[in-house]
Computed example of a mutant assay.
Amino acid sequence: MGKLEVNHPLKYHDQFITGMLLMVVGTVCFASKSIIIKWAYSYGATPESTLLFRQLIATPLFYVILLMYYRKLPAKPPKKDMVKAGITGLLVFFLSPLLDFIGLHYVSAIVERMLVMSYPIFVLILSFLSRKERVSILDVIAMGVVSFGVFLSIGGWNLHELTANFFGAVLILLSSAVYACYLVISGQMVHRIGSIRMNVYGMSLASIAMIIFLFIRNSFGYETELLSFQPTVYLLFFMIAVITTVAPFLLMLEGIKRIGAVRGSLISMVGPIITIIFGACFLGERLTLIQWIGCFIVLGMISFVEGKKIRLKLKN
């Protein structure tokens, strides 16, 4: 009996440490996405080709994950739910990343990450418009502060910086809004179907949509290079699909199993800081003082809003 009492806390401790490590590594992998995409762009890759190869490489790997966890998954959902999951997945695996990847072509990885972080504000707005959920004074203040931070992060009153970043920033903010739509629409669906099946269905349909999009684009004379890049570019495509897309999902899935979703959310909040460090170290990105202030205003306010949600979950 005494032996069991000693082993149980030790086993829990090992599980907790393992879960923490998995979450940290997954967060670092995900935070490197913008950096590796920027590297691919520097070698001549286009946003469209980058997204296509990411989808084509990642989709089969998500099917492998599905097979790995198949026995542990709930019963296969009805076809109606499968179709809904696939269509909803078009938002998060096709439209949102397409806007994000194109926008990233025009702004730094650091600014892109800050703009992407604004999605909780869009979730608040959409929840109010679609579900008439109550918006508190604090929420309104948060929206205003984040909007001001976004304005500063893309140049503020510096017309040269503002003009240079404006087009890309608009696309990335649209990407964040689309991602927020996905979160609002798919909330209950994820619980019914599970994140693994949601990813498989969504990524599969998104890959088909991307091929159709490129076919239509090419028919209008906008040809997309796919097979003429140097080998380094294809290696980077592989890294974007595996290291920044599939690996984070699998690592965080296993991490959350061990430490819980709330603690996992806390760890993942350091992702933007990692992107800032990576952008400065590996890309040599330099922002103006005003942009740095804007980035940290966005980072601070979103962290506060998300942290408040996490504290409420911990109390419950």
Rank of each mutant, 00 (worst) to 15 (best):
A109F: 01
L95W: 10
V116L: 15
Y63Q: 07
F122W: 12
Y69F: 15
A58S: 14
F101Y: 10
K80V: 12
G86R: 01
Y70G: 07
K79G: 02
S127L: 12
A75R: 13
V116Y: 08
L115D: 07
T27C: 05
K84C: 06
M82T: 13
K80C: 04
I35N: 02
T88F: 14
D81M: 15
L52H: 04
Y43R: 01
I125V: 15
I37S: 11
L73D: 03
Q55W: 09
L56A: 10
L115S: 07
Y106P: 07
S49E: 00
Y43S: 06
M117P: 04
Y119A: 11
R113T: 10
Y69V: 15
S96R: 13
L98P: 06
D100K: 04
K38R: 15
V107D: 02
G89K: 06
I102Y: 09
S34T: 06
L104C: 11
V116H: 08
L73S: 02
V111S: 12
P77F: 05
A109Q: 03
P77N: 04
K79A: 14
P74D: 02
L52D: 01
F101C: 03
A75S: 12
W39P: 01
S34K: 00
P97D: 10
F93I: 12
Y63F: 15
L66P: 04
V116C: 10
K76R: 09
D81P: 11
P47I: 07
M117F: 15
M68C: 14
Y63D: 07
F62Q: 00
S32H: 01
I37M: 10
Y70C: 12
I102M: 10
A31S: 15
R54K: 11
V123W: 06
L95T: 12
P78L: 12
Q55I: 10
K38G: 13
L98V: 08
Y41E: 02
F101W: 03
Y63H: 09
T50E: 01
L124Q: 10
L115C: 12
V28S: 12
A58D: 08
T27Q: 00
